[in-house]
Design a protein around this nucleic acid. Sequence first.
DNA 1: CGGCAAGTGGAGCTTGCGCTCCACTTGCCG
DNA 2: CGGCAAGTGGAGCGCAAGCTCCACTTGCCG
Lengths: 226, 226
Amino acid sequence: MPRTKTAADGDRDLRVDAERNRNLVLAAARDVFAEQGLQAPMAAVARRAGVGIATLFRRFPTKDDLVTAVFADKMRMYTQIIDEALDDPDPWHGFRTCVERVCAMQAADRGFTDVLTVAFPSATAFEAERDRAVARLSELIDKAKATGRLRADFVHQDMIMVLMANSGVLAATTEAAQDTWRRLVAYLIQAFAAEAASPLPDPATPDEVTLALLRRNAAAGDGPSE
Amino acid sequence: MPRTKTAADGDRDLRVDAERNRNLVLAAARDVFAEQGLQAPMAAVARRAGVGIATLFRRFPTKDDLVTAVFADKMRMYTQIIDEALDDPDPWHGFRTCVERVCAMQAADRGFTDVLTVAFPSATAFEAERDRAVARLSELIDKAKATGRLRADFVHQDMIMVLMANSGVLAATTEAAQDTWRRLVAYLIQAFAAEAASPLPDPATPDEVTLALLRRNAAAGDGPSE
DNA sequence: CGGCAAGTGGAGCTTGCGCTCCACTTGCCG
DNA sequence: CGGCAAGTGGAGCGCAAGCTCCACTTGCCG
Protein backbone atom coordinates (compact mmCIF):
# COMPACT_ATOMS: atom_id res chain seq x y z
CA MET A 1 0.00 0.00 0.00
CA PRO A 2 2.06 2.99 -1.23
CA ARG A 3 -0.56 5.40 0.10
CA THR A 4 0.74 8.35 -1.93
CA LYS A 5 -2.64 9.82 -2.65
CA THR A 6 -5.09 7.78 -0.61
CA ALA A 7 -8.36 9.54 -1.29
CA ALA A 8 -9.94 11.74 1.32
CA ASP A 9 -7.04 11.80 3.72
CA GLY A 10 -5.93 15.32 4.28
CA ASP A 11 -2.20 15.25 3.56
CA ARG A 12 -0.86 15.60 0.05
CA ASP A 13 1.94 13.53 -1.42
CA LEU A 14 4.77 13.29 1.02
CA ARG A 15 8.40 13.46 0.20
CA VAL A 16 9.89 9.97 0.27
CA ASP A 17 11.81 10.54 3.50
CA ALA A 18 8.73 11.96 5.15
CA GLU A 19 6.71 8.98 4.02
CA ARG A 20 9.30 6.61 5.45
CA ASN A 21 9.32 8.42 8.77
CA ARG A 22 5.55 8.40 8.87
CA ASN A 23 5.63 4.63 8.62
CA LEU A 24 8.35 4.32 11.22
CA VAL A 25 6.24 6.37 13.58
CA LEU A 26 3.14 4.29 12.95
CA ALA A 27 5.01 1.07 13.55
CA ALA A 28 6.63 2.41 16.70
CA ALA A 29 3.31 3.71 17.98
CA ARG A 30 1.69 0.37 17.35
CA ASP A 31 4.32 -1.35 19.47
CA VAL A 32 4.47 1.22 22.22
CA PHE A 33 0.71 1.53 22.63
CA ALA A 34 0.31 -2.23 22.56
CA GLU A 35 2.81 -2.61 25.39
CA GLN A 36 2.07 0.39 27.54
CA GLY A 37 -1.43 1.50 26.65
CA LEU A 38 -2.48 4.89 25.40
CA GLN A 39 -0.94 6.68 28.34
CA ALA A 40 2.49 6.04 26.83
CA PRO A 41 4.20 9.40 26.25
CA MET A 42 4.58 10.67 22.70
CA ALA A 43 8.29 11.01 23.35
CA ALA A 44 8.49 7.25 23.81
CA VAL A 45 6.97 6.73 20.39
CA ALA A 46 9.37 9.20 18.81
CA ARG A 47 12.35 7.60 20.48
CA ARG A 48 11.26 4.12 19.39
CA ALA A 49 10.74 5.35 15.85
CA GLY A 50 14.13 7.01 15.89
CA VAL A 51 12.73 10.40 14.89
CA GLY A 52 12.43 13.74 16.62
CA ILE A 53 9.30 14.74 18.43
CA ALA A 54 8.61 17.53 15.97
CA THR A 55 8.53 15.03 13.10
CA LEU A 56 5.95 13.01 14.90
CA PHE A 57 3.79 16.02 15.59
CA ARG A 58 3.96 17.37 12.06
CA ARG A 59 2.53 14.12 10.74
CA PHE A 60 0.05 13.66 13.57
CA PRO A 61 -0.74 17.10 14.96
CA THR A 62 -2.32 15.63 18.04
CA LYS A 63 -1.83 12.47 20.07
CA ASP A 64 -5.37 11.69 19.25
CA ASP A 65 -4.67 11.76 15.53
CA LEU A 66 -1.90 9.26 16.05
CA VAL A 67 -4.11 6.98 18.10
CA THR A 68 -6.79 7.15 15.45
CA ALA A 69 -4.34 6.29 12.70
CA VAL A 70 -2.79 3.45 14.66
CA PHE A 71 -6.03 1.76 15.61
CA ALA A 72 -8.03 2.25 12.44
CA ASP A 73 -7.19 -1.20 11.15
CA LYS A 74 -7.57 -2.86 14.53
CA MET A 75 -11.07 -1.42 14.64
CA ARG A 76 -11.68 -2.90 11.23
CA MET A 77 -10.36 -6.22 12.46
CA TYR A 78 -12.77 -5.96 15.36
CA THR A 79 -15.82 -5.62 13.13
CA GLN A 80 -14.41 -8.28 10.85
CA ILE A 81 -14.37 -10.73 13.72
CA ILE A 82 -18.10 -10.19 14.07
CA ASP A 83 -18.60 -10.66 10.35
CA GLU A 84 -16.73 -13.94 10.47
CA ALA A 85 -18.78 -15.06 13.42
CA LEU A 86 -21.91 -14.39 11.38
CA ASP A 87 -20.57 -16.74 8.73
CA ASP A 88 -20.19 -19.54 11.23
CA PRO A 89 -22.75 -22.25 10.45
CA ASP A 90 -23.21 -22.67 14.20
CA PRO A 91 -24.19 -19.21 15.53
CA TRP A 92 -23.64 -20.18 19.15
CA HIS A 93 -20.13 -21.36 18.31
CA GLY A 94 -19.67 -18.19 16.27
CA PHE A 95 -20.79 -16.08 19.19
CA ARG A 96 -18.43 -17.74 21.61
CA THR A 97 -15.38 -17.50 19.39
CA CYS A 98 -16.31 -13.91 18.65
CA VAL A 99 -16.22 -13.04 22.35
CA GLU A 100 -12.99 -14.94 22.82
CA ARG A 101 -11.28 -13.36 19.84
CA VAL A 102 -12.16 -9.80 20.74
CA CYS A 103 -11.03 -10.34 24.29
CA ALA A 104 -7.83 -11.90 22.99
CA MET A 105 -7.27 -8.77 20.93
CA GLN A 106 -7.60 -6.72 24.07
CA ALA A 107 -5.19 -8.96 25.90
CA ALA A 108 -2.65 -8.60 23.11
CA ASP A 109 -2.85 -4.82 22.96
CA ARG A 110 -3.32 -2.58 25.98
CA GLY A 111 -3.82 0.34 23.68
CA PHE A 112 -6.68 -1.34 21.90
CA THR A 113 -8.27 -2.02 25.25
CA ASP A 114 -8.00 1.66 26.06
CA VAL A 115 -9.55 2.65 22.77
CA LEU A 116 -12.53 0.39 23.42
CA THR A 117 -13.10 1.36 27.04
CA VAL A 118 -11.12 4.17 28.63
CA ALA A 119 -11.72 5.74 25.25
CA PHE A 120 -9.95 8.68 23.85
CA PRO A 121 -11.73 11.50 22.12
CA SER A 122 -10.53 9.55 19.10
CA ALA A 123 -13.41 7.19 19.73
CA THR A 124 -15.58 9.60 17.80
CA ALA A 125 -13.50 8.82 14.73
CA PHE A 126 -14.53 5.20 15.06
CA GLU A 127 -18.21 5.90 15.50
CA ALA A 128 -19.24 4.64 12.09
CA GLU A 129 -17.21 1.47 12.47
CA ARG A 130 -18.65 0.86 15.89
CA ASP A 131 -22.24 1.43 14.81
CA ARG A 132 -21.82 -1.10 12.07
CA ALA A 133 -20.28 -3.51 14.55
CA VAL A 134 -23.24 -3.14 16.89
CA ALA A 135 -25.67 -3.82 14.06
CA ARG A 136 -23.86 -6.97 12.98
CA LEU A 137 -23.51 -8.04 16.55
CA SER A 138 -27.24 -7.77 17.16
CA GLU A 139 -27.75 -9.96 14.14
CA LEU A 140 -25.33 -12.53 15.50
CA ILE A 141 -27.00 -12.44 18.89
CA ASP A 142 -30.42 -13.02 17.35
CA LYS A 143 -29.16 -15.99 15.38
CA ALA A 144 -27.49 -17.45 18.44
CA LYS A 145 -30.64 -17.04 20.49
CA ALA A 146 -32.63 -18.75 17.75
CA THR A 147 -30.56 -21.89 18.26
CA GLY A 148 -31.69 -21.87 21.88
CA ARG A 149 -28.11 -21.98 23.13
CA LEU A 150 -27.71 -18.28 23.95
CA ARG A 151 -29.91 -17.10 26.80
CA ALA A 152 -32.86 -15.02 25.66
CA ASP A 153 -32.20 -12.09 27.96
CA PHE A 154 -28.76 -11.40 26.52
CA VAL A 155 -28.52 -7.92 25.03
CA HIS A 156 -25.84 -6.47 22.81
CA GLN A 157 -24.77 -4.05 25.54
CA ASP A 158 -23.65 -7.11 27.45
CA MET A 159 -20.91 -7.50 24.88
CA ILE A 160 -19.53 -4.08 25.74
CA MET A 161 -19.88 -5.01 29.38
CA VAL A 162 -17.62 -7.98 28.67
CA LEU A 163 -15.05 -5.71 27.08
CA MET A 164 -15.10 -3.38 30.05
CA ALA A 165 -14.82 -6.24 32.52
CA ASN A 166 -12.00 -7.78 30.56
CA SER A 167 -10.15 -4.50 30.43
CA GLY A 168 -10.35 -4.30 34.19
CA VAL A 169 -8.77 -7.71 34.56
CA LEU A 170 -6.10 -6.92 32.01
CA ALA A 171 -5.26 -3.61 33.62
CA ALA A 172 -4.70 -5.23 36.98
CA THR A 173 -2.84 -8.37 35.99
CA THR A 174 0.86 -8.38 35.36
CA GLU A 175 2.88 -11.09 33.69
CA ALA A 176 2.38 -13.18 36.81
CA ALA A 177 -1.27 -13.80 36.06
CA GLN A 178 -1.45 -13.02 32.39
CA ASP A 179 -4.08 -15.61 31.60
CA THR A 180 -6.63 -14.65 34.20
CA TRP A 181 -8.65 -12.96 31.48
CA ARG A 182 -9.20 -16.33 29.81
CA ARG A 183 -10.82 -17.59 32.96
CA LEU A 184 -13.09 -14.57 33.19
CA VAL A 185 -14.17 -15.01 29.60
CA ALA A 186 -14.80 -18.70 30.14
CA TYR A 187 -16.98 -17.96 33.16
CA LEU A 188 -18.93 -15.33 31.29
CA ILE A 189 -19.53 -17.49 28.25
CA GLN A 190 -20.87 -20.21 30.50
CA ALA A 191 -23.13 -17.63 32.09
CA PHE A 192 -24.37 -16.65 28.65
CA ALA A 193 -25.42 -20.21 27.87
CA ALA A 194 -29.16 -20.72 28.02
CA GLU A 195 -28.85 -23.57 30.52
CA ALA A 196 -27.31 -21.25 33.09
CA ALA A 197 -30.07 -18.69 32.85
CA SER A 198 -31.61 -17.26 35.98
CA PRO A 199 -33.16 -13.81 36.13
CA LEU A 200 -30.83 -10.84 35.72
CA PRO A 201 -31.03 -7.17 36.65
CA ASP A 202 -32.39 -5.06 33.82
CA PRO A 203 -29.84 -3.88 31.35
CA ALA A 204 -29.41 -0.17 30.86
CA THR A 205 -32.12 1.14 28.55
CA PRO A 206 -31.24 0.76 24.89
CA ASP A 207 -27.80 2.01 24.02
CA GLU A 208 -27.16 3.78 27.26
CA VAL A 209 -24.08 1.65 27.61
CA THR A 210 -22.69 2.39 24.19
CA LEU A 211 -23.60 6.02 24.56
CA ALA A 212 -21.91 6.13 27.92
CA LEU A 213 -18.74 5.07 26.20
CA LEU A 214 -18.96 7.98 23.85
CA ARG A 215 -20.03 10.55 26.39
CA ARG A 216 -16.99 10.09 28.51
CA ASN A 217 -15.06 11.64 25.67
CA ALA A 218 -17.01 14.85 25.66
CA ALA A 219 -16.95 14.81 29.43
CA ALA A 220 -13.35 13.63 29.67
CA GLY A 221 -11.48 15.70 32.21
CA ASP A 222 -14.34 18.08 32.96
CA GLY A 223 -13.22 17.05 36.37
CA PRO A 224 -14.23 18.12 39.85
CA SER A 225 -17.37 20.18 39.95
CA GLU A 226 -16.70 21.11 43.54
CA MET B 1 -13.27 8.42 68.96
CA PRO B 2 -11.14 11.29 70.33
CA ARG B 3 -7.95 9.64 69.00
CA THR B 4 -5.66 11.88 71.10
CA LYS B 5 -3.09 9.24 71.73
CA THR B 6 -4.14 6.26 69.63
CA ALA B 7 -1.40 3.79 70.33
CA ALA B 8 1.27 3.07 67.76
CA ASP B 9 0.39 5.87 65.38
CA GLY B 10 3.34 8.13 64.94
CA ASP B 11 1.99 11.58 65.73
CA ARG B 12 1.77 12.81 69.28
CA ASP B 13 -1.15 14.74 70.72
CA LEU B 14 -2.30 17.37 68.29
CA ARG B 15 -3.35 20.82 69.14
CA VAL B 16 -7.14 21.04 69.04
CA ASP B 17 -7.22 23.11 65.86
CA ALA B 18 -4.82 20.69 64.20
CA GLU B 19 -6.96 17.78 65.24
CA ARG B 20 -10.05 19.44 63.83
CA ASN B 21 -8.29 20.12 60.52
CA ARG B 22 -7.05 16.56 60.36
CA ASN B 23 -10.62 15.37 60.57
CA LEU B 24 -11.81 17.88 58.00
CA VAL B 25 -9.13 16.60 55.66
CA LEU B 26 -10.05 12.98 56.23
CA ALA B 27 -13.72 13.67 55.60
CA ALA B 28 -12.96 15.69 52.48
CA ALA B 29 -10.62 13.02 51.18
CA ARG B 30 -13.22 10.35 51.76
CA ASP B 31 -15.71 12.29 49.64
CA VAL B 32 -13.31 13.34 46.93
CA PHE B 33 -11.76 9.90 46.49
CA ALA B 34 -15.17 8.26 46.49
CA GLU B 35 -16.35 10.53 43.69
CA GLN B 36 -13.25 10.87 41.57
CA GLY B 37 -11.05 7.94 42.44
CA LEU B 38 -7.50 8.07 43.73
CA GLN B 39 -6.32 10.15 40.82
CA ALA B 40 -8.06 13.16 42.37
CA PRO B 41 -5.48 15.88 43.03
CA MET B 42 -4.42 16.62 46.57
CA ALA B 43 -5.34 20.24 45.98
CA ALA B 44 -8.95 19.18 45.46
CA VAL B 45 -8.96 17.52 48.86
CA ALA B 46 -7.44 20.57 50.51
CA ARG B 47 -9.94 22.88 48.84
CA ARG B 48 -12.86 20.68 49.88
CA ALA B 49 -11.56 20.55 53.41
CA GLY B 50 -11.11 24.31 53.43
CA VAL B 51 -7.47 24.09 54.48
CA GLY B 52 -4.19 24.95 52.82
CA ILE B 53 -2.17 22.35 50.98
CA ALA B 54 0.64 22.60 53.50
CA THR B 55 -1.71 21.64 56.30
CA LEU B 56 -2.77 18.57 54.43
CA PHE B 57 0.81 17.54 53.77
CA ARG B 58 1.98 18.09 57.33
CA ARG B 59 -0.63 15.64 58.56
CA PHE B 60 -0.20 13.18 55.68
CA PRO B 61 3.32 13.61 54.33
CA THR B 62 2.48 11.68 51.21
CA LYS B 63 -0.63 11.13 49.15
CA ASP B 64 -0.18 7.51 49.93
CA ASP B 65 -0.39 8.14 53.65
CA LEU B 66 -3.68 9.93 53.14
CA VAL B 67 -5.05 7.11 51.03
CA THR B 68 -4.02 4.60 53.65
CA ALA B 69 -5.68 6.57 56.42
CA VAL B 70 -8.85 7.12 54.44
CA PHE B 71 -9.36 3.51 53.44
CA ALA B 72 -8.25 1.74 56.58
CA ASP B 73 -11.78 1.32 57.81
CA LYS B 74 -13.19 0.45 54.42
CA MET B 75 -10.66 -2.34 54.27
CA ARG B 76 -11.87 -3.50 57.65
CA MET B 77 -15.42 -3.36 56.37
CA TYR B 78 -14.30 -5.50 53.46
CA THR B 79 -12.98 -8.29 55.64
CA GLN B 80 -15.97 -7.93 57.88
CA ILE B 81 -18.25 -8.68 54.95
CA ILE B 82 -16.46 -11.98 54.56
CA ASP B 83 -16.79 -12.69 58.25
CA GLU B 84 -20.50 -12.08 58.10
CA ALA B 85 -20.80 -14.32 55.07
CA LEU B 86 -19.14 -17.07 57.08
CA ASP B 87 -21.84 -16.69 59.71
CA ASP B 88 -24.58 -17.24 57.15
CA PRO B 89 -26.23 -20.60 57.83
CA ASP B 90 -26.40 -21.11 54.04
CA PRO B 91 -22.81 -20.80 52.79
CA TRP B 92 -23.85 -20.51 49.15
CA HIS B 93 -26.17 -17.65 50.02
CA GLY B 94 -23.41 -16.18 52.14
CA PHE B 95 -20.99 -16.44 49.27
CA ARG B 96 -23.32 -14.73 46.83
CA THR B 97 -24.18 -11.84 49.12
CA CYS B 98 -20.50 -11.49 49.92
CA VAL B 99 -19.67 -11.03 46.25
CA GLU B 100 -22.56 -8.63 45.79
CA ARG B 101 -21.72 -6.56 48.82
CA VAL B 102 -18.07 -6.14 48.00
CA CYS B 103 -18.91 -5.18 44.45
CA ALA B 104 -21.47 -2.73 45.76
CA MET B 105 -18.76 -1.18 47.90
CA GLN B 106 -16.69 -0.72 44.80
CA ALA B 107 -19.60 0.83 42.96
CA ALA B 108 -20.16 3.27 45.78
CA ASP B 109 -16.54 4.38 46.01
CA ARG B 110 -14.25 4.77 43.04
CA GLY B 111 -11.35 5.25 45.38
CA PHE B 112 -11.97 1.95 47.09
CA THR B 113 -12.04 0.28 43.70
CA ASP B 114 -8.66 1.78 42.96
CA VAL B 115 -7.25 0.61 46.25
CA LEU B 116 -8.34 -2.95 45.53
CA THR B 117 -7.20 -3.11 41.91
CA VAL B 118 -5.23 -0.30 40.37
CA ALA B 119 -3.59 -0.40 43.76
CA PHE B 120 -1.43 2.23 45.22
CA PRO B 121 1.81 1.49 46.99
CA SER B 122 -0.49 1.91 49.97
CA ALA B 123 -1.68 -1.59 49.27
CA THR B 124 1.29 -2.81 51.24
CA ALA B 125 -0.18 -1.15 54.31
CA PHE B 126 -3.24 -3.34 53.92
CA GLU B 127 -1.31 -6.56 53.45
CA ALA B 128 -2.19 -8.01 56.81
CA GLU B 129 -5.85 -7.17 56.42
CA ARG B 130 -5.89 -8.65 52.96
CA ASP B 131 -4.14 -11.86 54.00
CA ARG B 132 -6.69 -12.41 56.71
CA ALA B 133 -9.43 -11.75 54.17
CA VAL B 134 -8.03 -14.34 51.81
CA ALA B 135 -7.86 -16.91 54.59
CA ARG B 136 -11.48 -16.33 55.62
CA LEU B 137 -12.55 -16.28 52.03
CA SER B 138 -10.99 -19.68 51.38
CA GLU B 139 -12.91 -20.98 54.34
CA LEU B 140 -16.15 -19.56 52.96
CA ILE B 141 -15.43 -21.03 49.55
CA ASP B 142 -14.83 -24.47 51.01
CA LYS B 143 -18.08 -24.36 52.95
CA ALA B 144 -19.97 -23.22 49.86
CA LYS B 145 -18.46 -25.98 47.78
CA ALA B 146 -19.42 -28.50 50.44
CA THR B 147 -23.07 -27.64 49.89
CA GLY B 148 -22.63 -28.60 46.27
CA ARG B 149 -23.94 -25.25 45.07
CA LEU B 150 -20.60 -23.59 44.34
CA ARG B 151 -18.69 -25.18 41.49
CA ALA B 152 -15.74 -27.26 42.62
CA ASP B 153 -13.18 -25.58 40.40
CA PHE B 154 -13.74 -22.14 41.91
CA VAL B 155 -10.59 -20.77 43.49
CA HIS B 156 -10.17 -17.81 45.78
CA GLN B 157 -8.25 -15.91 43.12
CA ASP B 158 -11.46 -15.87 41.16
CA MET B 159 -12.83 -13.49 43.75
CA ILE B 160 -10.09 -10.99 42.99
CA MET B 161 -10.77 -11.55 39.33
CA VAL B 162 -14.35 -10.48 40.01
CA LEU B 163 -13.14 -7.32 41.70
CA MET B 164 -10.89 -6.49 38.77
CA ALA B 165 -13.62 -7.15 36.23
CA ASN B 166 -16.07 -5.08 38.21
CA SER B 167 -13.62 -2.21 38.45
CA GLY B 168 -13.31 -2.26 34.68
CA VAL B 169 -17.05 -1.93 34.26
CA LEU B 170 -17.28 0.78 36.88
CA ALA B 171 -14.44 2.75 35.36
CA ALA B 172 -16.09 2.79 31.96
CA THR B 173 -19.69 3.44 32.93
CA THR B 174 -20.98 6.91 33.62
CA GLU B 175 -24.26 7.84 35.23
CA ALA B 176 -25.99 6.71 32.05
CA ALA B 177 -25.35 3.05 32.73
CA GLN B 178 -24.61 3.07 36.43
CA ASP B 179 -26.13 -0.31 37.11
CA THR B 180 -24.30 -2.30 34.50
CA TRP B 181 -22.08 -3.68 37.22
CA ARG B 182 -25.06 -5.40 38.81
CA ARG B 183 -25.62 -7.28 35.61
CA LEU B 184 -22.01 -8.37 35.43
CA VAL B 185 -22.11 -9.61 38.98
CA ALA B 186 -25.35 -11.48 38.34
CA TYR B 187 -23.85 -13.18 35.30
CA LEU B 188 -20.74 -14.16 37.22
CA ILE B 189 -22.61 -15.53 40.19
CA GLN B 190 -24.66 -17.68 37.85
CA ALA B 191 -21.43 -18.87 36.29
CA PHE B 192 -20.14 -19.79 39.73
CA ALA B 193 -23.13 -22.02 40.40
CA ALA B 194 -22.30 -25.71 40.19
CA GLU B 195 -25.04 -26.36 37.63
CA ALA B 196 -23.36 -24.02 35.15
CA ALA B 197 -20.03 -25.75 35.40
CA SER B 198 -18.12 -26.62 32.27
CA PRO B 199 -14.33 -26.89 32.17
CA LEU B 200 -12.35 -23.67 32.69
CA PRO B 201 -8.83 -22.59 31.82
CA ASP B 202 -6.41 -23.19 34.68
CA PRO B 203 -6.24 -20.42 37.21
CA ALA B 204 -2.90 -18.77 37.79
CA THR B 205 -0.82 -20.93 40.12
CA PRO B 206 -1.56 -20.30 43.77
CA ASP B 207 -1.53 -16.64 44.72
CA GLU B 208 -0.05 -15.39 41.51
CA VAL B 209 -3.07 -13.22 41.17
CA THR B 210 -2.92 -11.75 44.62
CA LEU B 211 0.81 -11.35 44.32
CA ALA B 212 0.41 -9.68 40.99
CA LEU B 213 -1.70 -7.07 42.72
CA LEU B 214 1.09 -6.34 45.13
CA ARG B 215 3.90 -6.44 42.63
CA ARG B 216 2.46 -3.72 40.52
CA ASN B 217 3.25 -1.41 43.38
CA ALA B 218 6.93 -2.16 43.40
CA ALA B 219 6.90 -2.06 39.64
CA ALA B 220 4.59 0.94 39.42
CA GLY B 221 5.92 3.48 37.01
CA ASP B 222 9.16 1.65 36.26
CA GLY B 223 7.91 2.45 32.82
CA PRO B 224 9.27 1.91 29.36
CA SER B 225 12.29 -0.31 29.26
CA GLU B 226 13.03 0.70 25.71
C1' DC C 1 -0.78 37.75 79.80
C1' DG C 2 3.54 36.84 77.47
C1' DG C 3 6.35 33.78 74.73
C1' DC C 4 7.14 30.12 71.82
C1' DA C 5 6.39 25.57 69.82
C1' DA C 6 2.97 24.09 66.96
C1' DG C 7 0.27 25.10 63.22
C1' DT C 8 -1.09 27.53 58.86
C1' DG C 9 -1.55 29.12 53.91
C1' DG C 10 0.13 29.80 49.65
C1' DA C 11 4.01 30.80 46.61
C1' DG C 12 7.00 28.06 44.26
C1' DC C 13 10.06 23.98 43.02
C1' DT C 14 10.19 19.58 40.29
C1' DT C 15 8.74 16.26 37.13
C1' DG C 16 6.23 14.62 33.35
C1' DC C 17 3.88 15.28 29.23
C1' DG C 18 1.46 17.41 25.16
C1' DC C 19 2.74 20.41 21.96
C1' DT C 20 5.37 24.58 19.43
C1' DC C 21 9.25 27.28 17.56
C1' DC C 22 13.10 27.78 14.97
C1' DA C 23 17.60 27.30 13.00
C1' DC C 24 19.34 23.92 10.15
C1' DT C 25 19.25 20.05 6.35
C1' DT C 26 17.56 17.70 2.20
C1' DG C 27 14.75 15.71 -1.57
C1' DC C 28 13.21 17.31 -5.82
C1' DC C 29 12.04 20.20 -9.93
C1' DG C 30 13.65 23.09 -13.56
C1' DC D 1 23.57 21.75 -10.22
C1' DG D 2 21.25 25.50 -7.84
C1' DG D 3 17.44 27.01 -5.07
C1' DC D 4 13.71 26.53 -2.16
C1' DA D 5 9.67 24.31 -0.21
C1' DA D 6 9.39 20.50 2.55
C1' DG D 7 11.20 18.16 6.25
C1' DT D 8 13.91 17.60 10.64
C1' DG D 9 15.51 17.52 15.64
C1' DG D 10 15.63 19.30 19.93
C1' DA D 11 15.21 23.22 23.07
C1' DG D 12 11.62 25.06 25.37
C1' DC D 13 6.66 26.58 26.70
C1' DG D 14 2.36 25.75 29.44
C1' DC D 15 0.07 23.20 32.57
C1' DA D 16 -1.00 19.94 36.05
C1' DA D 17 0.12 17.51 40.18
C1' DG D 18 2.97 16.03 44.18
C1' DC D 19 5.39 18.09 47.46
C1' DT D 20 8.50 21.90 50.18
C1' DC D 21 9.74 26.40 52.20
C1' DC D 22 8.92 30.17 54.84
C1' DA D 23 6.94 34.25 56.79
C1' DC D 24 3.10 34.76 59.55
C1' DT D 25 -0.63 33.36 63.24
C1' DT D 26 -2.38 30.96 67.33
C1' DG D 27 -3.42 27.56 71.04
C1' DC D 28 -1.47 26.58 75.32
C1' DC D 29 1.56 26.42 79.46
C1' DG D 30 3.70 28.88 83.11
